[in-house]
Design a protein around this nucleic acid. Structure first.
Lengths: 228, 228
DNA sequence: GTCCGTCAAGAGCAGTGCTCGCAATCACGT
DNA sequence: ACGTGATTGCGAGCACTGCTCTTGACGGAC
């Protein structure tokens, strides 16, 4: 009948359902989700889900890939809504989108940007989606044509050039280094806020984050946003 | 006999021994250390260690406090060895000390700067040791008397002033904001390196980190290190 | 010398990831 | 149209976890 056999289609639906329930459990209980519990929620024996999921780590990998895709999509959507010439605006839209997604999905954020879960080794499937936000930032940086700055010395220069060639063509090694500083700054700020390092220090979370990311934009050498 | 009764002394020794074994297990297996396993290593029944440890979370809290103290001590020792007038040098010494401690004790680092372990709520005892590295950075910043910069607006300014009053007296809100940017940058960079976000991007880890932290020093407004 | 606090042990509960054999079912190829 | 074989689900079971409770024994304090 269909291109995919009925069996395969039912199987795909089943795996989707497992993923959905697992994501719900992840949101509720964090990374210590239990296969047995999702099996219970699905109304079937724990051993039955092993027909679809190779292991608990396998299930986590699915969720990790989905999470990377979700932040990436959120960031891209927010960035796309900004005037292409407003580089700082594009950068800030990206930052706030990432932060808001993280606040809305804290456990999923922790899954991808927190400490690796013990005994878990990230398979190769996860590296491609993981680069999505970085690539978006690279595009902004390349469009902004930042000041090349003083040349970087040593073997590091070649590596930064390689990174630039991959995500931000035409950007110098030094500017790429500053771009990665902003990248680190972004996820560092979100992680600190989410993981509680800002407790008892700053309550104006959004304003603080905004200040931080504007500073990062300046370091990167993005043009000042129109009307700010 | 002694000031502390014999009972209390034996008890203290026992808890120290438990902590030591637990730290060994943490280093080997990560945050999913099991009380039963450390009990086995100690040659006693799992139920016996509950005489000394209230719960697994309690044990984790001990290790967290120790870890905060250990990074703090490592950073302070490295920073103390640098000429007081060389602010950038003091900053870089702090950064590299933190990074090297983290590389040597990855699981302990993950415990304190990674995602919070699921279901674990950090007790109040952990907040004091947690500020140790931040306070050290504050002292460097205050000594460097950075440019006040443009005033920060809104309620955030008061919060930044309060933070400055606590860790870096005499520093303006804007400069404090830049100092916190460096703070975030430091731990963001270490976390990214340790948690695998730099994989397939940069191999010259130390040189990259050094470049990043020199950039952070510049952003903070520290004086350029003598002879660099 | 008795007494009571402290300690360690064992059994047990509820939960986990994961495996394996058995039974049923149901889409598919002939 | 039908037999069949792959696919699915189940239950029992293993080894493990955190944690509780009871029981027995040791030993310092009075």
């Amino acid at each position: 009948m269909s291109a995919a056999s009925l069996r395969a289609r039912v199987r795909a639906e089943m795996t989707d359902e497992i993923k959905a329930v697992a994501r719900r459990h992840l949101a509720a209980d964090g990374a210590n989700l239990s296969l047995r519990a999702v099996a219970r929620d699905l109304g079937m024996a724990s051993s039955a889900v092993y027909r679809y999921v190779a292991s608990r780590d396998d299930l986590l990998t699915w969720l990790i890939i989905d999470a990377y895709d979700a932040v990436g999509a959120a960031a891209e959507a927010a960035e796309a809504a900004v005037d292409r010439a407003d580089f700082t605006g594009r950068w800030l839209a990206t930052c706030h989108a990432v932060r808001e997604w993280a606040l809305a999905n804290p456990h999923e954020y922790a899954l991808i940007y927190g400490s690796p879960v013990p005994g878990y080794r990230a398979p190769a499937d996860t590296v491609a989606p993981a680069t999505r936000v970085g690539r978006l930032m690279g595009r902004i940086l390349a469009d902004a044509r930042p000041d090349p700055g003083e040349p970087v010395e040593g073997p590091l220069a070649a590596e930064l050039d390689a990174v630039a060639a991959e995500v931000a063509p035409g950007v110098s090694a030094a500017a790429m280094g500053r771009g990665m500083a902003a990248w680190i700054h972004l996820f560092g700020a979100v992680s600190f806020e989410l993981f509680g390092q800002l407790a008892n220090a700053v309550d104006e979370r959004r304003a603080f984050f905004d200040l931080q990311m504007r500073g990062a934009a300046a370091v990167m050498g993005l043009a000042r946003a129109p009307g700010s």
